[in-house]
Design a protein around this nucleic acid. Structure first.
Length: 472
RNA sequence: GGCGGUAUAGCCAAGCGGUAAGGCAGAGGACUGCAAAUCCUUUAUCCCCAGUUCGAUUCUGGGUGCCGCCUCCA
């Protein structure tokens, strides 16, 4: 089965056919770096990270671009409030973004362009739109002329009249039509500004993505992703700008992908409701693997509800996956026997069958929830094999681990179970406990177990001895 | 008002024409000094009402509930 994606342009699942065979140009809307990003922002970062990894796994050469919006109203307000420059604010929160994204196991983009480093490209793009007759200058502002662009509204499936009725004009704007949106904003006192053919000013919000995506990916790109709320106006405007600038008749984007909203306790997250949570705060409370598991346990287009219960469930699920891997490692040290009569061929055949199902799920509009289901089937198969066979051939361990790691390389929800620097001390305590158990000194034995438990180390007694693992 | 999404067990969540994956939690059992992990067993008239069909959770129509977008929020 080949990859099928739900394209918001057509509202249908479509077979994914890249512009250049074997290559994917992928632009994902990044954060506005005025604050820590929140747990709702984390969803697109995580799910599209997984899509990117899946494409790479399938052999595509993916060029993944995710921007930093480092100049806009929010940036200006926040910098003013903190009494620092917009640039200082951006530096700080780009850094914080990278910290949190790294913690969440999100691969860095191939290119992470910043709006303020592409002012010239933005100005060029605007100039082309004006030259092509789809934008106009008005007292130092430049606006996109929506009425001149018949395709406007095709992404969000709205007609101009309906959009018009919902449009509002901010005081001080100099638009010809309420639907027109700013490409360039004339300088205001105390705000950062750049020289342009229309006087000093700064870019509007949408134009940076048009300018930067075409610079790094070309005028016609394969995939563009973001949250559903960006569909209108952001992506609608981006498409209009990009296509009006290139004037090539080619679509800006072939596949538009939008993730569903993350709710907190069934409500939209907002500061006024008091249910706002940064990714940083979530990471202090929950394991990153559990956060990823949670994000990937539902289809990316469905809304998901962030609750303490759902995160606890995710943590339990992650533990089950990790237990399998650590049981496997432990058994690999104690129970290898190449003359075991375990049927490796049959095992391999089953794993291959699961592998095909996993791939089918991922290829079916990137159905990570179903794929995780298959992963649990694999885990169950491995657990049962470990249970039913006292010894197993080394080929069994090789295969089991190969598949688990392959899946985790895409999903990133199992993580590393290797022992660490503390292990010498832990092993010494375990040895002491083993002696105590031999002497039927269960009081001491349980004391050691509780001591380690309090440090997040779980002991498990097996016929091959005591194994330990970390809580997540 | 316009556009759109969604409704599956106690909870989370796939499936979407041939009578329901998986996970979490619970119950019983095996194993264990006790645990933990794991294994076995167990838990669903798929929101309601019509219709299409040999057959619908799955398609169509109509309800109802919840949610999102409609100018700078992923």
């Amino acid at each position: 089965m080949s990859l099928v994606l739900f394209n918001d342009l057509t509202r249908k699942k479509e077979e994914f056919i890249p512009i250049k065979p074997g290559q994917v140009s992928f632009y994902s809307c990044g954060p506005t770096v005025y604050d820590y990003f929140h747990i709702g922002n984390a969803r697109p970062f995580i799910v599209f990270d997984v899509l990117r990894r899946w494409l790479e796994h399938e052999g595509y050469n993916v060029k993944f671009v995710q921007n930093f919006t480092d100049i806009d109203d929010k940036m200006i307000h926040r910098a003013h409030k903190e009494n620092i420059t917009v640039q200082e604010l951006a530096e700080r929160f780009i850094n914080e973004y990278n910290k949190d994204a790294d913690s969440l196991g999100i691969k860095r983009p191939d290119v992470a362009p910043r709006a303020t480093e592409h002012i010239q490209e933005i100005i060029n793009t605007i100039s082309r739109i004006i030259a092509n007759g789809h934008a106009y200058e008005s007292n130092g502002d430049v606006y996109f002329d929506v009425k001149s662009w018949p395709k406007y509204g095709t992404l969000c499936k709205q007609n101009l009249e309906d959009l018009e009725s919902g449009a509002r004009v901010e005081p001080g704007e100099k638009k010809r039509d309420p639907l027109d949106f700013a490409l360039w904003k004339a300088e205001k006192p105390g705000e950062p500004s750049w020289e342009s053919p229309w006087g000093k000013g700064r870019p509007g919000w949408h134009i940076e993505c048009s300018a930067m995506s075409s610079k790094y990916l070309g005028e016609n790109i394969d995939i563009h992703s973001g949250g559903v709320d960006l569909m209108f106006p952001h992506h609608e405007n981006e498409a209009a700008q990009s296509e009006a600038a290139s004037n090539s008749g080619k679509p800006f984007v072939n596949y538009w992908l939008h993730n569903g909203f993350l709710l907190i306790d069934s409500e939209k997250m907002s500061k006024s409701l008091g249910n706002f949570m940064t990714a940083r705060a979530a990471l202090e409370k929950y394991n990153p693997l559990a956060l990823r598991f949670f994000m990937l346990s539902a289809h990316y287009r469905s809304p998901i509800n962030f609750t303490p219960e759902s995160l606890e469930q995710a943590e339990s699920g992650v533990m089950r996956l990790r237990n399998c891997l650590s049981d496997l490692d432990f058994a690999a040290e104690n129970r290898v026997n190449d003359s075991s009569n375990f049927d490796v061929k049959e095992f391999d055949a089953k794993l291959k069958d699961f592998h095909a199902k996993f791939a089918d799920s991922m290829n079916d509009d990137f159905n990570t929830a179903a794929a995780i289901g298959i992963l649990f089937d694999v885990v169950h198969l491995i657990n049962t094999s470990l249970k039913e066979n006292e010894t197993l051939p080394s080929e069994f361990f090789k295969l089991a681990k190969k598949y688990l790691l392959e899946y985790d390389n895409i999903l990133g929800i199992i993580g590393d179970v290797e022992s660490d620097s503390e292990s010498d001390e832990i092993n010494a305590l375990i040895q002491e406990r083993t002696q105590a158990r031999k002497a039927k000194n269960f009081a001491r034995s349980d004391e050691i177990r509780d001591l380690l438990k309090s440090r997040g180390i779980i002991l498990e007694d097996t016929p091959q001895g005591t194994k330990w693992k970390r809580e997540i």
